[in-house]
């Protein structure tokens, strides 16, 4: 049982590791530059430079 548990944990780590590595850990760091071509609904700024001094939310989402 212990062996099975260890195998499951190892497998979980193997699968989880690439996902965690792909995720940017940016908290506390200077925000990486970004630039937006165009948007649906008007944006008052289209790059990090234009947003300096303001607060920015970048959110990934999906309609489904």
């Amino acid at each position: 049982m212990r062996r099975l548990g260890a195998t499951v944990l190892s497998a979980a780590f193997l699968f989880a590791a690439p996902v965690l590595m792909a995720q940017a850990d940016l908290k506390g760091k200077d925000a990486p530059d970004f630039k937006v071509g165009s948007t649906i609904n008007e944006a008052q700024a289209l790059s990090l430079d234009e947003c300096r001094g303001d607060v920015v939310l970048i959110k990934y989402w999906g309609v489904n």
Binding site: A22, Q23, A24, P32, C51, Y60, W61
Partner: peptide, 15 residues
């Protein structure tokens, strides 16, 4: 690029 959500959506960053 640089703001990879990685583990799926929704995922957000606040500057």
């Amino acid at each position: 690029s640089g703001y990879e959500g990685g583990s799926g959506i929704p995922y957000a960053f606040v500057i």
